[in-house]
């Protein structure tokens, strides 16, 4: 119970602060602390992040205002991506995806730290 609360709290902090990345905290903690099987951990992280994103979004909306008009193609892509994602998940090799993701994210991280 305590572990679940800490795990959820960390995910919320990342989700609210960065607007992303809650799942990246959740999955390893789910597996290591709470003993969830890998695929179950990934899927459950999505279930946790969705309501947290909704809550954070309200704050972001009040603080910054978000215009949908400029990002609708991306939103639409996300809608389709979500549908595809759920259907193909069973046969996906998560490890390979994590490696590719890692390379992209390190590149982006370097640019973000240097503000370039």
């Amino acid at each position: 119970m305590k572990k679940k609360i800490i795990t959820g709290g960390l995910a919320g902090a990342a989700n609210g602060f960065f607007g992303a990345g809650g799942g990246l905290f959740l999955v390893p903690l789910f597996v290591r602390w709470l003993g969830l099987e890998q695929k179950r951990a990934f899927a459950t992280s999505v279930a946790v992040i969705l309501p947290l994103s909704a809550v954070s979004l309200v704050v972001y909306f009040l603080k910054g205002g978000i215009s949908i008009s400029s990002v609708w193609p991306t939103l639409l892509g996300g809608l389709v991506g979500g549908i595809v994602s759920g259907r193909v998940f069973g046969g996906v090799n998560v490890t390979t995806l994590r490696r590719i993701f890692g390379i992209l994210i390190i590149y982006g991280g370097i640019r973000a730290v240097l503000l370039i």
Binding site: A41, I49, G81, G82, V84, S85, L97, I105
Partner: peptide, 10 residues
């Protein structure tokens, strides 16, 4: 990114 998000891979 939507496909990755659905998987929970960031």
């Amino acid at each position: 990114t939507g496909i990755l998000s659905g998987f929970g891979i960031g």
